[in-house]
Amino acid sequence: MKLEEAKKTFDFIFSELNKVIVGQNEVLKQVSVALLADSHALLEGYPGLAKTLTIKTLAQLMDLKFSRIQNTPDLMPSDITGTYIIEESTAGKRSFKFQPGPVFANVVLADEINRATPKTQSALLEAMQEHQVTVGNTTFKLEEPFFVLATQNPIEQEGTYPLPEAQADRFLLKIKVDYPSFDEEVEIVNRLTEDYKKAALKPVLNRDSLLYLQNMTKMIPIANDIKKYAVQLVTSTRQKKDLIEYGASPRASIGLILAAKARALIEGRKYVSKDDINKMAFPVLRHRIVLSFEAERQGMHADDVIKSLLK
């Protein structure tokens, strides 16, 4: 597949997604960036903004194994990873058999991840980092590609376990899902309150094509000065002590450049531009920096601080 074909493929994916999701083009693009970068994304938004629907539809278009984990405070790690169950054969012989959990899929939707206990969160995060699951003494490799697309609600704080910064760092992107515009909301109302024919979606990408596109993403060249600009941006988060208490780690530098390459591929460009770095800086850095008291006192958000660092 050539780069031009890759762009056409993604344009088609977005047009198919728009049959189900109204607006949210930037969210769709950023989720695609996470998939191409072979990493995970955390979607944060208020209830009812089609976060779950977006991920489900995307998985459907990519002909990938999809599973959903609805996180609740009583969810156990074995509910995610799977466990051994006793199975009785027809001959009456009993044996332990491993029953894989929902994590054994290509696209895992972890809904409301901040409602799960830290222990359950860590079980999922281990799978995210190492693409494998350990149950007892046995390690099971997860099938490639493997993505975790998690969602969380910013307003419900009671009974939640916010992801620690060290574990939020595992997500490549933290995608903010905003409210739709007025026209978009009218369109949503038209589709869901009237006799609107549900779009029949056909898979566009298969597993092998997606793996190939992930490989192609890494092939996109980047100029040295743009690479240095990206790294300098991340290091500046550690130096701006007046606004940032804890800056981003080198994982952010890797993620920023990968995300910029993925964005270039989606737009059909054979090179990474400075604009890619600037656009991807927000989803890559906003969950990796801890604002200082001074910044919070001034009412600044992570995005405001990141904006001040960009040149």
Binding site: P221, I222, A223, N224, D225, I226, K270, Y271, K274
Partner: peptide, 8 residues
Amino acid sequence: EQLITVAD
């Protein structure tokens, strides 16, 4: 941005 990318 293309010429510098190609050169690098």
